[in-house]
Computed example of a mutant assay.
Amino acid sequence: MARTTPSRPLDVEALFPEVSVHRRDAVRLHPRAGDPGIRESSLGGPLLWPGPQPWPHCDDDHPRTALSPSGPGPIPLVPVLQLFAADVPELPYPAGTDLLQVLWCPFDHEHGYVPRPEVFWRDSSLIDVEAAAPPRPTDTHDDYLPNPCVLHPERVTDYPNWDLPDDVAEALEDRFEELEEETGWSYWSHLSVSEGIKVGGYPTWTQDPYWPTCPSCAERMDHLLTINSAEFDGESWRTWLPVEDTPATGTIWDLPYEERSRIQCAPGLMLGDMGGIYLFECLRCPDRPFAYHSDCS
């Protein structure tokens, strides 16, 4: 079943034409529990992996936290996302590739105290061998192990919230407040940045923005994708809860916890306190330097 974000309740660009120049396209992935195949785009599903290539491991030293490994030794990375160009052509696939795979070490790392992701770009037509099940780390916590989910990519428009230029935000502050007082709709929560796990658009920051600088060209890197703990929160659900998941009566918060969780948090991830991990690449440099950042409430 497709997932459809409701149309915004107000015409953002008519109300605030100043933000129109900052609009960006995004693809909400809408993961839902399922049984994805190895040649399907998925979250937490099996990967189309070249048989001869060793499975990647993490050899980092991990900080001592509740989400740290119990002993030393290399830790196998776990599959997080697999995206084929046929499903998400908006990704900036390097020439000769049509497949993005994201894996991460499912333990806390010093940088952000979240899993450390790695990205792999591939030409799926050159992968003839479907690898057996990858090794599974031991002593891991469910918070960092995504449940297998199928995806329902949907194209939406993002307007910046935290990334709105300071001069524009200051000029619009009073009008934003007036709109919320008159209509109950918040530009920041309901009308700007799409939520959930997504490709492109703006990161769904919960703290001040942090855009990494490319180590090669010293320019700001590009937002590749966001992996969030939830599809929406207690404030934003009115515009980011898909139409197909809307209860016939009452609201999403009237559903039993287990039923709501299957919609709001299908992958079962908890990154900090309902936080997210943001992946970046530099599209100007041939070697595509990669970085990530995380934040939470």
Results as ranks from 00 to 15, higher is better:
2 A>W: 13
7 S>I: 10
7 S>V: 11
10 L>I: 04
13 E>Y: 02
17 P>S: 15
20 S>H: 07
26 A>M: 01
33 A>G: 10
35 D>V: 12
38 I>C: 07
50 P>I: 02
55 W>I: 01
58 C>I: 04
62 H>K: 06
73 G>E: 09
82 Q>W: 06
83 L>C: 06
85 A>T: 03
85 A>N: 08
86 A>W: 01
86 A>S: 15
87 D>P: 00
93 Y>N: 08
93 Y>R: 07
99 L>Y: 07
106 P>F: 09
113 Y>N: 13
120 F>H: 14
122 R>P: 01
125 S>Q: 11
128 D>G: 13
130 E>R: 12
139 D>I: 00
141 H>P: 00
151 L>V: 02
163 D>M: 14
168 V>E: 03
169 A>V: 02
172 L>V: 11
172 L>Y: 11
181 E>Q: 14
188 W>N: 14
193 V>T: 15
202 Y>A: 05
204 T>Y: 06
208 D>G: 06
209 P>A: 00
213 T>K: 03
213 T>S: 07
218 A>M: 09
218 A>V: 01
223 H>W: 08
229 S>T: 12
234 G>Y: 13
238 R>G: 01
246 T>K: 11
248 A>E: 15
249 T>G: 04
256 P>S: 12
257 Y>L: 11
258 E>Q: 11
265 C>Q: 13
266 A>L: 10
273 D>H: 08
276 G>D: 07
278 Y>K: 06
287 D>F: 02
